[in-house]
Design a protein around this nucleic acid. Structure first.
Length: 225
DNA sequence: ACAGGGTCTGCAGATACACA
DNA sequence: TGTGTATCTGCAGACCCTGT
């Protein structure tokens, strides 16, 4: 039982007229959603995706990109000058996946448990996690910005009148609070470890220190009964 | 109805190589 | 150099058959 997407790539389908089954056919393959996750943050070159998705075999990445492209989720774009080559970016259809991806990440965050040996935390994962655990009700009417430094990774979160903007690198405008998290060499830079350091007060703060508590309130992993 | 075993198929991963 | 493609191996899971 197979279905064709486009002209070349054949893959399994579930043979069910169901939105969830269709979603799984399109983005349920191994690595597919992680590729989408990284492209939500910004368009990427092939090699950036390969580096950012530590462990993905190059042929699997090529296959997934082709499948996602044929499904209309990803598109190839000419890299902006002075760069050469192509970059991969999400289409409008791909970007419309973000709420579903964040819901899934939010649920997954409640199921993480303790990090296992060999686990890694990617910068893109940190950005997605910030978006996933953002509590819009807590942020209603709030305007504040944070910059978080963990080892060599910098991410920012800017809340403007309750609306969130996050991304890699420094905040677009000077942050209200810069949080530098010091972790042991062997400690995984997980969101849990970062929040734990913030709660313990073992972080370096620069700016409006009151906003640390605000951050912890606004970016909270929900509990599951 | 269920369990166990054998076979087949598709996928992941590693590696080498091609091509613009 | 960047972006793939080709090929091979090993493995997991789906499927089928048979016995209880």
């Amino acid at each position: 039982m197979q279905a064709c997407y486009g002209s070349a790539v054949k893959r399994r389908d579930f043979g069910q007229y169901c939105g969830l089954a269709r979603a799984l056919e399109l983005v349920g393959e191994r690595w597919a959603l992680l590729i989408v996750r990284n492209l939500i943050v910004r368009p990427r070159r092939y090699t950036e995706l390969q580096t950012g998705l530590a462990g993905i075999p190059t042929n699997v990445l090529a296959t997934r990109l082709k499948e996602l492209e044929q499904a209309g989720i990803v598109e190839r774009q000419v890299a902006p000058a002075p760069a050469r080559g192509v970059v991969y970016a999400l289409t409008a259809v791909g970007r419309s996946l973000e709420p579903a991806l964040l819901s899934l990440a939010r649920w997954g965050a409640t199921q993480l448990g303790e990090p296992q040996k060999g686990d890694v935390v990617t910068p893109e994962g940190m950005v997605l996690n910030l978006r996933a655990v953002f509590q819009s009700a807590e942020a209603a009417g709030l305007t504040a910005s944070w910059e978080i430094h963990v080892r060599d990774v910098v991410v920012h979160a800017v809340v403007t009148d309750g609306a969130l903007l996050t991304g890699l690198g420094p905040a677009p405008v000077g942050p209200d609070l810069t949080i530098t998290v010091e972790l042991d060499d062997d400690e995984l830079a997980s969101y849990r470890a970062i929040v734990s350091s913030m709660r313990d007060g073992t972080v370096e703060l620069a700016g409006d220190r009151k906003l640390l508590g605000t951050f912890l309130r606004v970016f909270t992993v929900p509990r599951v009964a």
